[in-house]
Design a protein around this nucleic acid. Structure first.
Lengths: 353, 353
DNA sequence: TAACATGCCTTTAACGGTAAAGTAAATAGG
DNA sequence: CCTATTTACTTTACCGTTAAAGGCATGTTA
């Protein structure tokens, strides 16, 4: 009933607890006979070291805290999958928390992780969270911290892994321009840094093409598909009509498409749509969604690497800012025939259940 | 740099560590003056108790281990979201592990969780994992254990939360029968218990309707969309042709639809399709997928409740088997007009990013 | 007024492990 | 052959916390 401890093994064998500890940690100063006896008994009793006790003495929990805004969003889940791979390979566990886009919950999760003595924290911070001070304290007390995807809390000194959001907006817009679209609207996200940068990229691309974006082309919305839906309803009333829209993220783009369909229009013939983020299953939609993607797995892995660099304790941490480059994911919704990626290829292997 | 400890606070105030501990744990035998002084200093230094040390003495980590086969599959992620909600409300954290459908990794995750002394484990076990013995040991040594969704390891005594898979198969098939379909094929899953039950439900429903399923109507495939795709290619060669297909899960159903489209046929006019699992975004597909669903949030919550019941330690644990009832999710792919759920309603609120 | 309870705080031990310092016996060196 | 060194352990202390038992004034009861 009570799990086996070193004490038990030591008592059984008439040796000291330290001897057992040394055997298990491969210290050199244990004789082969004793070593064998200990190992045998360990095997026999199925002894597993108590990680909690180990953490206490070693001051290392081999645990990473992960705080993301939304468990249901495939983007973050894929990032977590990337993290998990690297962490697992190093014997680390992931303590997963969802802030549900709530700054208060984010705060309490962060404090919980701190009190649990996690060796590092990976955070995609909620917008408007005034947790800057707490994060500064975490970073200052030597806690490894990496912020991912979102670029707020500029005063917090820590590693960051994100994409080039202005380039995201620029690529999406330039792609639509290349398809011959000229009246390109933008469904903007909330007042969060990376959303604003996508908008800036959109504006810059239009200007570079000699087009001045009309004010009414930019509808400030949000990141949810309902936001995209309502924003699109508004855009559909414009005269002269628009012929394309870049939505700040994929859910909003999907909402926009629904509004377009409802109005009896066709994507991409009447209005081309491009999103951002490369959400899972974007290829399986009624009209497969063209989007700007950046590798979430890469993002997760780089974040994990930076965390471990810091944990491994080069004190001279120069905080890095890793940019995951975005790339176009061309599907049907933008009006370009995607080369060879039509309905004629067998589906790629997706995960099972 | 070194985080504040009780020792530090006690020394500052000239009281014993125990006194500080008692204040923080609201023991009655501390005078109001001392209590106030301690609390003031705690506040001042921003003291947070070290959860690791607490875990060691209290023999409670306030952590649940979660092992799922696939982080990328929306089904499990939604279950985890349900778990997270309940766990968080009780001050519990979730240590998330993905077995990536690999029995060996499942085993090592389970052992890792055990050595980390988690208070309970929620497991969706990989098929064919011969971890039965390990699970029995976990259950026997008093570890709280709940198995979810999958119903293997019959000899392990623990709580289970799952759906009625035979009913899933039956409902899907009966729904197709009700649409007037008669030549209904089945894309079966792998040789895992819940897949076999779905197949049994399919067969039973046909027989109840006085139809004998032809052997060639059942194609043993898998749970991945590529499996559904290839299975469907085969089914398309049958003569007389089929007019409907029930796939053992949604990814397979999606693969099947791709094969149908490629053959130049129309869903549901030529072939109706029903899946199982109610995958995320099933409503946004080229043809919205009719499927049989069961609440993942409910599943996650019930699992968490059972875990906590066991942790709270009624010794008289009668292991429960909670069935989450399945329900039809009628969309376009089965040929029935879904009432009011067409493209005319605004999209439901989906999560943002 | 001795016996007893009460209020308030401290001491001791423990949780399960690791590290550093100590020790006794075997081996080596001069 | 007697002192260094090495080998193979053990002892002690500590990680940060909590529980159980102990102590000691002061107040209450018989």
């Amino acid at each position: 009933m009570t799990p086996t401890t070193m004490k038990r093994i030591a008592a059984d064998l008439g040796v000291s607890i330290t001897t057992v500890s040394k055997v298990l940690n491969n210290h050199a100063d244990i004789g082969p006979a004793t070593r064998a006896r200990v190992l045998a008994r360990v095997e026999e009793l199925g002894y597993r070291p108590n990680a909690v006790a180990r953490s206490l003495t070693l001051r290392r929990t081999h645990t990473l805290g992960v705080v993301i805004p939304d468990l249901m969003h495939s983007f973050f889940v894929e990032v977590v999958a990337g993290l998990e791979t690297v962490a697992n390979a190093r014997g680390y566990g992931l303590l997963l928390c969802s802030s549900t886009e709530n700054p208060r919950k984010e705060r309490s999760e962060l404090e919980m992780l701190r009190s649990r003595q996690v060796d590092g924290i990976v955070l995609a911070s909620v917008h408007g969270s005034n947790n800057t001070e707490l994060l500064q304290r975490i970073a200052a007390t030597g806690g490894a911290l990496v912020m991912i995807d979102r670029d707020d809390h500029p005063r917090v000194h820590c590693h960051r892994v994100l994409t080039d959001d202005e380039l995201v907006g620029r690529m999406a817009t330039e792609h639509l321009l290349a398809q011959g679209r000229r009246a390109i609207a933008h469904i903007a996200g909330p007042a969060i840094t990376h959303a604003k940068r996508r908008e800036a990229g959109y504006v810059a691309a239009l200007r570079d093409a000699g087009l001045e974006p009309r004010p009414e082309w930019i509808v400030r919305g949000g990141f949810m598909d309902a936001d995209g839906y309502h924003a699109m309803q508004h855009l559909l009333t414009l005269d002269p009509p628009i012929d394309a829209v870049f939505a700040a993220n994929d859910p909003a783009a999907i909402g926009a498409m629904q509004a377009i369909w409802e109005a009896g229009l066709v994507v991409p013939d009447d209005i081309a749509v491009v999103g951002a983020g490369d959400i899972a299953h974007g290829d399986l939609l009624r009209v497969p969604l063209t989007t700007v993607g950046w590798s979430k797995e890469e993002l997760g892995k780089r974040a994990a690497e930076l965390i471990f660099d810091q944990i491994d304790g080069r004190e001279d941490v120069a905080f890095r800012r890793v940019i995951i480059p975005p790339h176009m994911v061309v599907r049907a919704s933008c009006g370009e025939e995607s080369p060879g990626a039509g309905a004629n290829t067998p589906p790629q292997s997706r995960r099972q259940r």
